[in-house]
């Protein structure tokens, strides 16, 4: 089972072209989003440990997600992406800019 990895590089585009979607799109920091709102990650400006943790979880530009809830004191926020659910604090969400659906 030999695989030519060079073949795969062709597909390895950095960002997928945006899908057709309904609704108006606006640029927001993730913190400002409300529950059930969908979005696509535009940029992650965190570096260091936080940046790594976000990337390990798959929060990279181009990722679609939806806000699924907030903790009883409004912070942290729970989001769903790539088939799983994760949480982060509002303070940490400030580093993430998104194209959000209205």
């Amino acid at each position: 089972m030999e695989v030519e990895y060079s073949d795969l590089r062709i597909h390895n585009a950095k960002h997928q072209p945006p899908k057709e979607r309904r609704g108006v799109i606006m640029v927001l920091p993730l913190r400002k989003m409300h529950v059930n709102q969908k979005g696509r990650i535009k940029a992650v400006t965190a570096n260091g440990e936080l940046g790594r943790r976000l990337r390990d979880m798959g929060l990279v530009p181009g990722t679609d997600f939806v806000i699924i809830g907030r903790a009883p004191l409004y912070d942290p926020v729970a989001i769903r992406l790539k088939g799983f659910t994760m949480t982060l604090r509002n303070k940490e969400a400030d580093y993430i800019t998104v194209d959000a659906e209205k």
Partner: peptide, 30 residues
């Protein structure tokens, strides 16, 4: 380091997009 991660995910996505996995909706509530 962010670019490295982006391309790793890009590499993974290029594999998955070739039909290894299909799902109705990634964002559907579990």
């Amino acid at each position: 380091e962010a670019i490295v991660a982006d391309y790793r995910y890009g590499f993974i996505n290029s594999l998955l997009k070739q039909g290894a996995i299909t799902r109705e909706d990634d964002l559907r509530f579990d």
